[in-house]
Design a protein around this nucleic acid. Structure first.
Lengths: 218, 218
DNA sequence: ATATTTCGGTTGCAAAAGCAACGAAAGGGT
DNA sequence: ACCCTTTCGTTGCTTTTGCAACCGAAATAT
């Protein structure tokens, strides 16, 4: 329990929530932990989603499978990060996305309704929790905006540079959580075309890379 | 005042807020109404954004200007709808987007901080307001997801069909709020290429259209 | 160690998209 | 009514992208 708290306490959802609050919360919220192996499906597109998931170890991916087998990677969610908040909050009957574990992972599930509705025990931290949830969802919306900015670029090169700029932050060297095929799915272009473009960019002295490590050369 | 309430009361932000609550709110929230002519800039990218805007009449657009003059239309916001919530909620120092009036418009601005922080008057509706705000932002995030789905399509035709499917709902005939150039900016493709594709789709008996009115055939 | 699968770069070709320019039609203002 | 601007379809051309296939290297399993 203490371990779990140590992992998730930095998440926006638990801002100003103490350990004792947390203990009480999990009690009154029918939270549960589940383990998944690599590439296991956590939630299938079309299922109802009424929980918020918190990654305790490993990582999960939000993906969408095209009716013709093509998959788009929406996002990757790492340790202490949350997923499912948005769909839970709009109380969408059916999830438009599928969620899979990208590696062996442990997930803490919290019933969404218990977060947003005041419980009968009148826990004093509920209003704090809702305010936190607001921040969390807003942050997610901001991430989605970034993704839109990437996808609105017209050429593969521009998409890549835009993505790299978000990923790098202030650093010039950075790692991406995807291999080539996955990165192509993330920026929604053909893998071989992307590979071609990356080579060209390296030839022109724009970037340098090795495996999933990239460097922007000024 | 009553007029304003009649316009915005259907917005998610005011679910379960009565008129008397609303009156009290605007008092304690330093809300103000402003008028804009067509194509006036309401907020310039880079400015700080600490308000939620509610469209009382007309409509506004969320756009992003590329450093090389190209503009992308993120979204169009009509009467009784809100904008700015996301950026206000993440307390982003600088807005990544520009907001312009698409036509003559009246906007109600509400100070964001006054919404999310409990005011000294201990207004009883504040917690309701925060819960509403959560729904609002989650809804916005869902819209962004739809936009990503559109942009993740590889061909112009697929982008258009995806967009049309969101716009049409259950109907086969529907109007879009954009002219051709704007629609091209919205789905992030070249206008002439889009025009070409629309003609082809009409030739193939897929769709029919006249001005900004479209119809999906069978 | 060897077999098998995954990964990633490359190539050639076909399809799609972007770009620039043109012109007709529609719309708005004086 | 006339002029000027905006809108939108069209065309020819160039560039970019997608696609399928291949191959060697690396990773993983047997």
């Amino acid at each position: 329990m203490r371990q779990i708290f140590e992992i998730v306490k930095d998440n926006l959802l638990f801002t100003d929530i103490s350990f004792s609050d947390f203990e009480q919360m999990l009690d009154c919220m029918t939270a549960k932990v589940a383990k998944y192996g690599k590439d296991e499906i956590i939630l299938l597109s079309g299922d109802t989603i009424d929980f918020v998931g918190l990654v305790l170890s490993g990582s999960v991916r939000i993906i969408k499978e095209d009716f013709e087998g093509r998959t788009t990677i929406y996002d990757e969610v790492g340790v202490s990060e949350a997923f499912g908040e948005v769909f839970a909050c709009v109380e969408a009957a059916h999830s438009p996305v599928t969620i899979v574990s990208a590696e062996a992972s442990e997930i803490l599930f919290i019933d969404y309704r218990k977060i947003i509705s005041y419980c009968s025990n009148a826990c004093p931290f509920h209003s704090q929790l809702i305010a936190n949830m607001l921040k969390l969802v807003a942050r997610k919306a901001q991430m989605l905006n970034q993704k839109i900015e990437i996808l609105s670029q017209r050429t593969i090169r521009d998409k890549l540079m835009c993505y790299f700029n978000f990923e790098r932050g202030a650093a010039t060297k950075f790692k991406v959580p995807y291999n080539r095929g996955e990165m192509a799915d993330y920026v929604c272009v053909d893998r071989s075309a992307m590979s071609k473009e990356l080579s060209k960019m390296r030839d022109e002295g724009l970037i340098e890379y090795f495996k999933n490590e990239f460097e922007i050369l000024q």
